[in-house]
């Protein structure tokens, strides 16, 4: 299945891209997705644990499974205002 990943702010800059589409086996968890992102983007590995993830515009815990075709957003600690 395909999973689209969006990256923001420092996560985007560390990865060097604002989005990536991953081909993955079904029943991918967010924890597994984090591992895959860290593998693909070593520069992101250290910062990634500080980021929250969202699936299709809703915050999600690491044990959540990513539905096929979903969009996952990598969200660094926020600093609006």
């Amino acid at each position: 299945m395909l999973v689209r990943v969006l990256l923001f702010a420092r996560a985007r800059e560390l990865a060097g891209t604002d989005s990536i589409t991953l081909q993955s086996a079904p029943a991918l968890t967010l924890e597994q997705l984090r591992q895959e992102l860290a593998r693909r983007f070593p520069a992101l590995a250290e910062f990634l644990p500080r980021c929250r993830l969202a699936i299709d515009d809703s915050f999600a815990d690491d044990h959540c499974t990513v539905p096929p075709g979903a969009t996952v957003a990598v969200l660094p600690p926020v600093s609006g205002g």
């Binding site: 923001f8 702010a9 969202a54 957003a73 660094p76 926020v78 600093s79 609006g80 205002g81």
Partner: peptide, 14 residues
């Protein structure tokens, strides 16, 4: 509202 905006809304500043 302002406290919550700074805490949870996915906005970032550089």
């Amino acid at each position: 509202a302002m406290e919550r905006i700074k805490q949870v809304v996915p906005i970032w500043k550089k």
